[in-house]
Simulated scan of single mutants.
Amino acid sequence: MEYIYLITPFMAWLVAGITKFIVNSIKAKQLAFGLIGYGGLPSNHSAIVSSMVFLIALKEGISHPAFGVAVTLAFIVLLDANSLRQQVGKHAVAINQLKEVDGSKPLRERMGHSKIEILAGIAVGAVVAYGLFVILGGVQA
């Protein structure tokens, strides 16, 4: 088994998460532990799936069936991040307005990603995949 296929999405998640924490901390002008979660720049989900798309393209080529499967999965995740999860966030806003009356804990409203956040996640995934391909590409375990 080539461990690069296991390491790459994990590293993409880690790099995107650290980057998001730094960006959120700069915006908030304090350590942004409370802002960890869904939404923000870059998109972790986009970074993870795109890292596999790019790694498979680099290692197997774009004519390999695994590349088609990875692209299909990536489209589903990217569309979900941009549209469905944003709609869930809008619903949370409306529900929270209703819940203000009873004082219960509010729902998380920041759920989806903007196109820029998704593109940043894709860029992180591509850079991580390329970097690991260069470093570990020829290594088989």
Rank of each mutant, 00 (worst) to 15 (best):
H64E: 04
F133T: 05
K59F: 04
Q97A: 15
A70V: 01
V69G: 05
I122Y: 02
L73N: 05
I48Y: 01
L55H: 03
L58F: 07
V71G: 05
I76L: 13
H113L: 11
K99S: 12
L119D: 03
V15R: 04
I62Y: 06
A123M: 08
G131P: 01
L78G: 05
K105S: 15
Q86E: 12
V134P: 02
D102N: 15
V127R: 00
I118R: 09
M11H: 01
Q86C: 12
S83T: 10
L107A: 08
N96V: 06
G34E: 13
A16P: 01
G89H: 08
V101H: 14
S25M: 05
N24F: 09
V124A: 05
N96S: 06
E109M: 14
N24H: 10
A57N: 00
G61Q: 03
M52W: 00
L14R: 06
A81M: 08
E109R: 14
R108W: 07
Y3T: 08
I62G: 02
V134T: 13
V77S: 07
S83A: 13
F33G: 08
R108E: 15
G137S: 02
L58K: 03
A126G: 15
I7G: 00
M11T: 09
S43A: 09
T19E: 00
L55A: 04
I135G: 05
I95R: 14
T72K: 00
S50Q: 01
W13Q: 08
L98H: 11
N44M: 10
G125Q: 04
Y130E: 07
H45C: 07
S50F: 12
F67D: 07
T8Y: 00
A57H: 01
V49T: 11
H64N: 13
Y3A: 11
A92I: 12
F75W: 10
L31I: 14
S46Y: 00
S46A: 13
Q86S: 14
G121I: 01
A94G: 03
Y130D: 06
L58W: 02
F21V: 09
P65M: 08
M111A: 10
L35S: 12
V49F: 02
Q140L: 12
L6T: 05
V77L: 05
G39R: 09
G137D: 05
